[in-house]
Design a protein around this nucleic acid. Structure first.
Length: 632
RNA sequence: GGUCCCGUAGCUCAGCUGGAUAGAGCAACUGCCUUCUAAGCAGUAGGUCUUUGGUUCGAAUCCAAACGGGAUCACCA
């Protein structure tokens, strides 16, 4: 409609204003609630050019639109704003249109380019936590939103399955696992523990031993005993000790951390883990077997977690298979002069002219670093999917710098698609008690949290839900749907870019701006429709109540919101929109009769309105990965 | 220290490329279930949009600085 008005006015701008106007002059907004009208054109931008008062300009445009745009029935000019009243006939036609479309608001499937969305990408040494939940829900939802915008989407992750951290769990398991009567160490099978939890347990165990060994070394040093340590180390330690003198708490902690690092590097347990990594890289059969076994446990555990989350992937990349990929790119770039080699053999890129630093891309021993692999993986992905237009990396904002560098390097290597790639950088999730810290045990486990929200949903639904006639299985399904819906909505309703606070109590709330609030509205409508029996295919009503018009207006905005969410990669826009729609519907529901409306024409109108709202709720929630119930 | 992000009601968040009197939810207080699901609705109260300058018809929004919070700057990932 805004476009129709704009082009109409542009077309006649010479006869109306005596000059050519530009589309950018047209600013529309929804008319304020208290005022008469549906849509408002801001007049100010024209005033200067037209050399007349806002009032005159408004009247001129208003008169013209009433005469030439069929759907504008009247107007009012209020202090520089032209408030246009759109005829009810227009909105009713709009409603019929919405009702007739099955995939209302979505672009034609496969009508746009192929995009890869990467999300999750966990380490295989510990279980998934609350931060991963935000990551996964976001990545999944953005994938759905892109599909709704016509894109073909490849959901992917790169699994961080190698490196020193993996060796730590492996070593700890080998060394510290108790051996049972059958002569076996702990396994998921003989303990009943979820695989990722079991491996995570040994990662923690490693850290414990690691720390106590380091502590022992420090106290040895503190007593002046440097037996078995180099002179260099001794002087380094003494230097740091001396630096502690007279320092404030914050600086003191920094120094103590440095001392700790110093000691940690001297522990035998770390040396052993590093040795294991070298063996792994050399494909030592024993280490390799241990590695595949323990990773297998983790994958089994992750599968369970992903299933509960309701997310999935189309293609997996494993770091163990990709970590060498970037090396060729680096050598190629070296030839092109994009990179340069230092005396010690390490390879770097100088990004200082782009306002960044120098960045290492290959170690002096020729091994790959994190970014080397990312370069290789990106190129590889475009080879795997030749029609790929972009990769979207759903990764926390602590890696903003990394991706800035990555995209810049890819660009310098001559890959034009680098400009299309994006870092969907999301903020950290904080707890009321502060930051999540694995060392302090304040990490919220993903499985535990999901179990908790579902249990809470069950409790509350049993209290007040409409469960008669449902089988136990159906009830469980419903509790799952409500609990997970609440959790997902809670994590997705805030702008992804922003750091957010996770309040456990609020996350299981059922009232207000929550998932269950929206699900409830859907259930109410569905039950209404079930009672109605038949659904009319269109309405022949000729007038709308304000409550009804409000809803049609909101419904008509849905396609715009879907587009916007796709452009911004923001599920929050979908969530907020749906919340507005539901609020408007609830208001309408409470103020008029629907089924009980005696006038057939009105009843049909309201039924269609309700049905369309349910449809858009279902559709928008699908974009968030949230299911909606028929009853609750 | 360099770079980047953030600062809106007691709390958690909306506020699109500048537009009318800054909005929701939670918490507090008032009402509404013998008509379609009260996980709902209607209402009251709550604000110097961190501060100070600038840009202009007009600033929560754009620019600059200050203050406060966070991230990052590894031959870690």
């Amino acid at each position: 409609m805004e476009q129709t008005i704009t082009s109409l006015l542009l077309e006649h701008s010479e006869q109306l204003f005596g000059m050519k106007l530009e589309a950018s002059h047209f600013q529309f907004q929804k008319t304020k609630k208290e005022l008469k009208g549906d849509i408002t054109l801001v007049i100010f931008p024209f005033v200067k050019m037209l050399r007349c008062s806002p009032q005159e300009a408004g009247v001129k445009i208003g008169d013209f639109l009433v005469a030439h745009a069929g759907f504008i029935s009247s107007y009012e000019v209020v202090s520089g704003f032209l408030n246009l009243v759109v005829s009810d006939a227009y909105w009713i036609e709009k409603l019929n249109e919405i009702q007739s479309e099955t995939l209302y608001g979505w672009a034609k499937p496969d009508s746009a380019s192929r995009i890869m969305v990467e999300y999750s990408s966990p380490n295989t040494n510990k279980p998934l936590h609350l931060g991963h939940l935000r990551n996964n829900f976001l990545g999944y939802s953005v994938s759905e939103i892109l599909k709704a915008n016509g894109h073909k989407v490849v959901k992917t992750q790169v699994i961080n399955d190698r490196g020193i951290h993996i060796c730590k769990s492996m070593l700890a398991w080998e060394r510290f696992s108790p051996i049972n009567a059958a002569g076996e160490r702990e396994t998921p099978q003989n303990t009943g523990l979820k695989g990722d939890k079991l491996v995570g347990k040994y990662y923690v165990e490693f850290d414990k031993q690691f720390n106590s060994e380091a502590k022992a070394i420090i106290s040895q040093w503190e007593q002046g005993d440097f037996e078995g340590f180099s002179e260099e180390l001794k002087s380094e330690f003494l230097k740091l000790e001396a630096a502690k003198e007279g320092k404030e708490a914050k600086a003191l902690k920094g120094i103590e951390d440095k001392i700790k690092d110093l000691a940690k590097n001297q522990t035998t347990i770390l040396r052993d883990a590093k040795e294991m990594l070298i063996k792994w890289e050399a494909r030592d059969p024993q280490v390799y077997l241990l590695w595949t076994t323990m990773n297998g446990w983790v994958y089994d555990g992750f599968d369970v977690t992903y299933k509960a989350m309701g997310v999935d992937f189309d293609k997996l990349y494993y770091e163990s298979e990709t970590f060498l990929l970037g090396k060729d790119m680096v050598l190629e770039g070296l030839e092109k002069g994009v990179f340069y080699r230092k005396q010690d053999g390490s390879v770097w890129i100088d990004l200082t002219s782009d306002g960044l630093d120098e960045k290492l891309v290959l170690r002096s021993d020729g091994t790959a670093v994190y970014i080397t692999q990312d370069i290789g993986t990106a190129v590889d992905r475009f080879k795997d999917y030749p029609d790929l237009s972009s990769i979207i990396y759903t990764v926390g904002n602590e890696q903003d710098y990394h991706f800035k560098v990555l995209f810049l390097i890819l660009k310098k290597l001559g890959y034009d698609w680098a400009d299309q790639c994006a870092h969907l950088s999301y903020g950290m999730v904080d707890l009321p008690s502060g930051k999540m810290k694995s060392r302090e045990g304040t990490v919220v486990d993903a499985d535990d949290l999901m179990e908790e929200v579902v249990a809470k949903a069950a409790e509350m639904t049993r209290e007040r839900g409409h469960l008669e006639g449902m089988t136990e299985e159906e009830k469980e399904e419903l509790f799952q749907l409500i609990g997970m819906g609440g959790l997902k909505y809670y994590l997705l309703k805030v702008d992804p870019k922003k750091r957010m606070l996770f309040n456990p109590e609020e996350s299981i709330e059922l009232n207000g701006n929550t998932g269950p609030f929206i699900q409830y509205a859907h259930a109410r409508i569905r039950s209404l429709i079930a009672k109605a029996g038949t659904m009319p295919s269109n309405t022949i009503a000729s007038a709308l109540l304000p409550e009804e018009k409000e809803i049609v207006q909101l419904l008509s905005e849905y396609p715009v919101v879907v587009k916007e969410a796709g452009r911004e990669l923001s599920p929050a826009l979908i969530a907020n929109y749906t919340y507005e729609l539901v609020k408007a519907y609830n208001h309408f529901y409470q103020s008029v009769y629907i089924l009980n409306e005696p006038n057939t024409e009105l009843r049909e109108l309201r039924l269609i309105l309700s049905d369309s709202v349910a449809k858009v709720i279902r559709s928008s929630m699908q974009l968030l990965g949230i299911r909606v119930p028929e009853r609750m």
